[in-house]
Amino acid sequence: MYDIVLDCQSVHHWFGDQKVLYDVSLKVVRGQIVALVGPSGFGKSTLLRAILGTHPPASGQVLMNNGPVTTPGRDRGIVYQKYSLFPFLTAHENVAFGLMLDQSSLPFRLFRFWKWRNLRKTHLRLAAELLHKLGLGNSLHLYPSQMSGGMCQRVAIAQALILKPEILLLDEPFGALDEATREEHQQMLLELYQENLTEKQAGRNPPYTVILVTHELNEAMKVSDRVVALSKYWLWEDENHRESPGSTVVYDAVAPGPPRDGGAVLDTFLKQRSEIRQAAFQPTTRHKRGEFIRFWRECQEGKGRGVMQ
């Protein structure tokens, strides 16, 4: 019924004796913006790396469009909090870098120089167009060290988006930004989501599927249409474990969207935030694994938002 882009099937991961992920299953529908939250050190980035293909799971599997993920590939874009850009390239060269790698080989660039030169012009033009669209038209020739953190993250998002990946993975991309810049970037994500809805209404595939890893609950609920929480604070004793087997999905629900002052949506927003805290962040209020997992049920009941409607 839904167009599943990403399917994590019973993913387990550990480093030596340290158990990190336990039986994580997650299906992501094309066009969704999924916020992945949870306490620090509870496996969010590990799950992202498994999806990226740089650190495949110790057991279980990750499928992209039904194909297993074993290495990084251009169907998955990534934006990190740090080291998001290549420091030796200017803004538009950074954005064009993916096009270069995707559409030309090293021998082609070395031995068919004139053809490469023409192709390069096209790449740089496309990169410049995208940067103009994201409000960075005046910063094309700046190096990352000459740009602010917010500008760098915008360029990094453009760099990932220009290849039109099946899924965009954002690993706490706005974590180091000030409040105002962070809000600007959140707005940018909401605009991408709006494009998804427009495309879906026109009967086409929504172009942007995003997993946003963040520790900011407000951000998670504001920009996503679904919130998933990973945590170790669940009743693993009930499943016959003698010690914590690692983090698993303890919360999965439709996100309320941006809060509006004084309205019913604000109440829902605050209620859901306190629910996520209870499900994932408080060691004292452990609960059954499936207690707060209701996303697919909510969708069946017609409560899904955006592309799930």
Partner: peptide, 22 residues
């Protein structure tokens, strides 16, 4: 940083491209 190499791989770089271009 390994993140830059991972990123290059997601942008379609081969191993040799990572060595040369990154």
């Amino acid at each position: 940083p390994e993140e830059l190499v991972f990123k290059a791989r997601t942008l379609g770089a081969s191993q040799m491209e990572c060595v040369w271009s990154v």
